[in-house]
């Protein structure tokens, strides 16, 4: 069973969003990291880059796979997680601590289109 945390928002492409004072902290879920295997690289946007909901903003790579990341919300990148440059395995060890980017949202209402933990659990159950 994949771990799901209450209080976060989830996308169908397995990103999670945590809201901190109007800032969206974005990462990938436990389900996503498990299906990737050992993550060796995270391709992240730079500070000030714009991201749009449901559009690619980067990718995670394992030895034999690559998976694009889709922005669950739109906005401006404030920061990417520099720790992942040296230690991408953080996403495997603790996917909910290993955030990828922080985004200043341009449309906070977009979170209403995401799933809560219960809906995501149900979504996963249908997948598995």
């Amino acid at each position: 069973m994949s771990k799901i945390i209450d209080g976060l928002f989830y996308s169908e492409s397995h990103e999670w969003v945590k809201l901190e004072d109007g800032i969206a902290v974005i990462g990938i879920t436990d389900f996503a990291q498990k299906s990737m295997g050992s993550i060796v690289y995270v391709d992240m946007p730079d500070e000030d880059d714009e991201v749009s909901r449901n559009e690619e903003f980067g990718a995670v790579e394992s030895v034999k796979a690559a998976s694009d990341l889709y922005a669950p919300v739109s906005g401006t990148v404030m920061e990417h997680n520099g720790e992942l440059e040296d230690d991408p395995g953080l996403l495997n060890r603790d996917p909910y601590a290993g955030w990828i980017i922080k985004v200043r949202m341009s449309d906070p209402a977009e979170t209403s289109e995401l799933m809560d933990s219960a809906a995501y659990a149900e979504f996963l159950a249908r997948q598995e």
């Binding site: 060796v40 690289y41 394992s62 030895v63 395995g89």
Partner: peptide, 11 residues
Amino acid sequence: VRRPDETLAAT
């Protein structure tokens, strides 16, 4: 050589 550590090589 035996199985190489591909994760190390790519990380």
